[in-house]
């Protein structure tokens, strides 16, 4: 088994928000990440899926220590970085980099592309052997852009090209881990595939480890080796990709897969829509967090908080009734394969 690069234990992040009435001094906390154990192996792509507000972005930022955890440990290459500060923290941050969702906002509009992509090196005080300019050009070429693009500003590029610039910048420091937070969600379908392929090429070339955060189960299916499913601050299921999509064990995962729009018209309407909205992370329900929407919930689910338990090879699930419910295969493709090819 591959070496563990990131090892997370009991990780929590609670954001304080002003609560109550005008005169109340009561503080409420959004429990964005609420007790997560997770290991990321060197060289793998771990997909992290979940709906908005489930805490997946916060988890990604915790691993990069862009936010400070409320509790728990984050071991990065064996060292606990959960409480690092100052220069030591900045040094660790350089070993892990991020690709952002917003290709428009994440590039400083007042900087030239050459400066943008080499900025991490300047900050780290590591001038490249070939000089900044030549290095910028080679970085741009490695993500499929022209060397002449170095002189331009970010706004002169399309969304897909900007995302390539963001990727070049993330790779400048030759990081071990790349956290990609919805890297293709803002892109058009035809551009999305280009960027995904690029990310896969770069992973092979630079032996990168990816934490790939997305709400798009199709994209995650394509790129991930293992997939973790998050709901209201918790990981509810973790499995190798094939197992997760073919034999999902948690009722939430099953509902998520069932909710994906049909791949072809022939599969239309064969899905059960999950009722209701996710509860507020300000006040997660007691017991199993999913019981308010779960079609299989029983009285026990309201009281007991299920731990993440092994349920097969490399497969774990946090559900009290997982064995009773069993894996449910969701028809995701038309028998006979894909059309139009």
């Amino acid at each position: 088994m591959a070496e563990t690069l990131v090892d997370i234990a009991g990780l929590e992040k609670h954001f304080a928000v002003a609560g109550g009435g005008w005169f109340s001094r009561r503080k409420l906390a959004v429990r964005a990440v609420d007790g997560v154990d997770l290991a990321i192996r060197r060289g793998e792509t771990l997909g992290l899926v979940g709906e908005s507000g489930c805490g997946k972005s916060t988890l990604g930022r915790l691993i990069l220590r862009l936010v400070r955890p409320s509790a728990g440990a984050i071991r990065f290459g064996g060292v606990d970085i959960a409480t690092l500060e100052g220069a030591a923290l900045r040094a660790v941050r350089r070993r892990a980099q991020m690709i952002f969702q917003d290709p428009y906002g994440s590039l400083n509009p007042r900087m030239r592309v050459a400066d943008l992509v080499t900025e991490p090196l300047r900050i780290a005080g590591r001038p490249p052997a070939a000089g900044y300019r030549a290095h910028a050009e080679s970085l741009l070429q490695s993500v499929g852009l022209d060397a002449q693009h170095a002189e331009r500003y970010a706004h002169e590029f399309s969304g897909g090209q900007r995302q390539r610039i963001g990727i070049a910048r993330a790779l400048a420091l030759e990081p071990e881990l790349v956290v990609a937070d919805e890297p293709v969600s803002a892109l058009d379908v035809s551009i999305r595939a280009q960027v995904i392929n690029l990310m896969q090429d770069l992973q092979a070339r630079h032996r990168l480890t990816y934490l790939f955060i997305s709400h798009d189960l199709g994209v995650v299916h394509h790129i991930a080796d293992r997939v973790a499913v998050m709901y209201l601050g918790r990981i509810v299921e973790l499995a190798p990709k094939r197992a997760l999509y073919a034999t999902p064990r948690h009722p939430y995962t099953q509902s998520l897969l069932a909710a994906i729009p049909a791949a072809t018209p022939a599969l239309r309407g064969r899905r059960v829509a999950l009722g209701g909205d996710p509860p507020s992370p300000l006040a997660p329900p007691p017991g199993c967090r999913f019981h308010t929407r779960c079609p299989h919930a029983i009285e026990r689910c309201r009281r007991e908080d299920p731990p993440l338990q092994a349920a097969g090879e490399g497969h774990s699930v946090a559900c009290l009734r997982a064995d009773e419910i069993g894996p449910i295969a969701i028809p995701l493709i038309q028998p006979g394969g894909r059309a139009g090819r």
Partner: peptide
Amino acid sequence: LLQSVPDMGEERERLPTI
């Protein structure tokens, strides 16, 4: 367009692109 959508039925090394 149809081909560049990742689908969950089969595993492909690379996505066809436009």
